[in-house]
Every structure is written in C-alpha cells, then in structure tokens.
Design a protein around this nucleic acid. Structure first.
Lengths: 118, 118
DNA sequence: ACCTCATATGAGTAGTTGTTCATGTGTAAT
DNA sequence: ATTACACATGAACAACTACTCATATGAGGT
C-alpha cells in the first residue's frame, strides 16, 4: 500500500490515470472473480463440460466423474450459487443442466484457449 | 466412489454413456481448471482488466489497485504461468500486457455474464 | 565501487477450499 | 407407516492460497 509511483515520467501518470478511470466497481470485479472461481476447479469444470453434452441427474454425474454423490452435490451447490447451472426435479431425481448458452460459450472459450498454445 | 447408478432406466444409462464418450482427457480438464483459477481471484481479475485498458509497469499496477508491489508481483507470476500476460523490460521497469486478444475476450465475456443476470 | 530504484521471490501465516463422513429431507413404493 | 432411494447439508480436516515481511537480483545513475 501507499506505493508512490515509480519514475515520474509523464507516460506513467497518464497511463495510471487512464486505467483508473476505466476500472469497474469493486462489486463487479468481485462478481467476475466469483464467476471464474466457480469455473476454476477440476471437478466443477468437468461437471460443466459433462452438462454441456447432456443434462444429467446427480447420480449420473457421480458415475461419470467417478466421485461420491456427496462431493458432487457440494460442488453443484457452488455452481448453482454462481448461476452456472439450473435444475429441475423429476420424481426422486434432480436433473442439472447448464444455465444458458452463455455458460456453454465460456467453457468452450476456455477450451479453445488451452488448445491453442502448447 | 463406486456409486452404482440410481434408477436403472434406459435414459440414465444412455445419457451416461453418451456423456462419458464425449468427455475430454484429464490433462485438458486440468488445464482448463488452471486457466479459470487464474482468472478467479479479485486481485488478478482487476489486474487483467486494467491491462485490457493499457499495458502497465508493476508499480503502476500497484498504484492503480492500491496494493503492495510484492503482492502484485506474486500475482503476476501466476498470470505469467497461466500465459495470460506477457511482459517486456524497459530499463528498470517491466511492462505487462494481456498475452493476446483471446484473454481480452475471456475477461469481456465474464463481464457480460455478470452484467446480464441480476 | 556505491547507492537507489523497480521488480522478483522465499518463508511464514491467516484464511479459504474440496473432500469425507454422518445425518437430514423429501419422494415413491410396498 | 415404513422402508428404500436420490439428493442436500453441516462438521471436520487436510490441502491450498494470497497476503506480508524480509531479502535477493539487476539495471542506472553518481
């Protein structure tokens, strides 16, 4: 904190001012961080990719990922909180799906990124 | 683990098989998780957004975000590892920028997502 | 050579996270 | 009603993370 700027060139001051002016609210950055944090886990990204292929009930997800139902359920709670998935109940089952195509394109774009550079 | 499928309806088995067949390698999912994890932090997402406006040296970033140079430097190391930023040295300074437009569009799309729904 | 400045990094630590285990909730069938 | 099943959730614990502090590196200026 209280870091005085480095070499006081004009460019430095101008760029800092320009960027500070363009920054978003703390609230927006917190939401963005929460969104990407929800995507940034091995288990959750697999869940989302699986759901991008087809909607699945919780036990099917557990089977596909070879994990306990409890672990999946905990992660689904986070994905629900981040509004990345929606669910519908059908009898004893709960079927999860991606919340919208926006989510699908985020996953796809992440995949593109990692496939591009070695 | 070792979760036998739930109600053995045909749909269940078919969907599980379909999804299992479409899943990616562990390696790819790990990379995707790493990518989103790098984006999924309040400080790092602010750094990336700042750099999407203009390239900045480390001390300028520290000033814009009102954080210590050390904290910024540690986070830049992670962003470098995730290939989200590149840097160029100029005298005593090191200027950071987004690695490519791919990164910019990831950030933009994250922003779109959080701005869409309340 | 020396000092200063900009940046990088290792160690330490408080806070966070992902899983397991045990248990709770609600639905359907007998 | 009771039992079984699908799912959710609280507690606990190990693993990880993001910061601070101290120190190292390396380039410029004197």
């Amino acid at each position: 904190m209280s870091n005085i700027s480095c070499s006081d060139t004009q460019k430095h001051a101008v760029n800092v001012a320009k960027v500070q002016d363009g920054m978003l609210s703390e609230r927006n950055f917190l939401f963005m961080a929460e969104l990407f944090k929800a995507l940034g886990d091995y288990t959750r990204v697999r869940i989302l990719y699986a759901l991008s292929i087809h909607e699945l009930c919780v036990c099917a997800l557990a089977e596909v990922l070879d994990m306990s139902q409890s672990a999946i359920s905990h992660q689904l709670r986070l994905l629900r909180a981040a509004k990345l998935v929606r669910y519908r109940k059908e009898g004893k089952n709960v079927f999860y799906a991606l919340d919208d195509d926006h989510v699908r394109s985020l996953v796809t774009q992440g995949l593109d990124h990692i496939l591009e550079d070695g």
